[in-house]
Design a protein around this nucleic acid. Sequence first.
DNA 1: GATATAATTTCACATGGTGAAAACTATTTT
DNA 2: AAAATAGTTTTCACCATGTGAAATTATATC
Lengths: 275, 275
Amino acid sequence: MAKKPRSDQYNIRVVEKTIRVLRVLSDGRARTLTDISQEVDINTSTTFRLLATLVNQNFLEVDDVTGRYQLGFACLELARSYQTGSELLRVARPQLKKLRDTTKETVHLAALDGIEVVYLEKLEGLHAIGLMSSRVGRRAPAYCTGVGKALLSHIDPEFILENMKWGNLIRFNERTIIDPDELLEHFRETRRRGYALDEGEHEREVRCVAVPIFDQRGEAIAAVSVSGPKSRMDPIDQNEDLIQLTLHTAQEISERLGYRSYMKHKIGEDNEKNH
Amino acid sequence: MAKKPRSDQYNIRVVEKTIRVLRVLSDGRARTLTDISQEVDINTSTTFRLLATLVNQNFLEVDDVTGRYQLGFACLELARSYQTGSELLRVARPQLKKLRDTTKETVHLAALDGIEVVYLEKLEGLHAIGLMSSRVGRRAPAYCTGVGKALLSHIDPEFILENMKWGNLIRFNERTIIDPDELLEHFRETRRRGYALDEGEHEREVRCVAVPIFDQRGEAIAAVSVSGPKSRMDPIDQNEDLIQLTLHTAQEISERLGYRSYMKHKIGEDNEKNH
DNA sequence: GATATAATTTCACATGGTGAAAACTATTTT
DNA sequence: AAAATAGTTTTCACCATGTGAAATTATATC
């Protein structure tokens, strides 16, 4: 989301390495020094020092029995700060809650990172909770999720063509679109009508309406979605009430972020690391 | 929590600086390059490079209008990973839920960092929710909170004497203990009976029972607490049911972490950075 | 107890992080 | 509109400090 206008030329390598270490440990598995050192391809003694620093700062913990490293509670502190500081979240939260309470279905807020989405907020539906696999801070593919498609529809097709690993796209079921042309056409159509639909192409039983949110520069920085079981939501493409409610929520948030509807949307080529 | 057995001698300075930057931005306020550079006392151009790296890695975002920096969504991802990876959380969560559901009151899990506590988990009480100011990832003083006192009671008094900023302890109300001798005596008593009480010494209307959790080495690594309004919980020191339930929950968690009740508790001198 | 494996620590080298200052950009003042 | 001011980005030479090889110590395995 937002722009990453900066090239990598000024990046500090140790910091990149540090983050690589944190990312490796982000799968939740605790690891030994040697394992980590190999996985991130950094010399043991350097890795040792990186780990020592992170442990001292509580970003990592050492299991005192196994000697393995895992993430530490400083991660929680950062996340909380992000959640209270982010203007997007602050503005969006009350609107999302309204949307959840009127639809009674699960509501998501997500941002795009490259060709994946990251969930920024999730409000559980009021029927039976805990059914959906999404979680705040988790990633999901963008090409087959509502929020993902809503956001990709505002990304320069060139960027998508180049960066999507077309060979590796998973066909979750017969509705999943993995063909480049078909997908790009799908994005054009999505963009034209202003909302995206997920008709079960990721999780077969789930339906979802998603709408992008624009900031004051007219850039699609996030998307809202309402998801629920097909039993309650189908046929989703004719579920006008739901579509209107979602559209309205997204517009409300966009406007509170400074977006004006007379503005043209920008096509984002962001997420691009221009070396 | 856990131990920080390592000295600072191997720390990589750039990494420390990076974390300093993240910590400064943890108050939620967005800042300009110059502000940050001054606050962390690092040269502008180095700060610039640190920020650039963090932005490229999504740990920071730049507000495109004001140009100010704030935390980015990568923080969320780390936190989620911590929450799914941590053995303590994995083991504790179902027990905490049981405790919350039987008491119907707010349940916390917290760890000690120096002389502060960090909340690792919070389950809202079932009465009216959202009353307590605590939040996962937030810090609170240890000397006047249930979880804090439960944990400090297992820390070497020497360490407490040296590291508590005695002059600056806030007296939230007339029940708050800020006298060194009195506080240390209070910890001894707390340790003896195995649970801590908060009789309103932080938030006047709140009462709380807290019990430390021990890992397989016999070290107090966290604490559980049940908190609620005095109307429902007083007189807390005679609320045997509540005390027993909390004790039992903590024991259950400790045992699942490998602690055996015949083990002696360790006195932790951890949290000490031995230069 | 011997061997193997992994975690620390040392140390010399040169990478790459650093700050001063210049160039550039945006904003405010005159 | 020009000038001044404040803030950001880029350059560049220096040498602090991050780096990897290797030695040492600790831990695990047989």
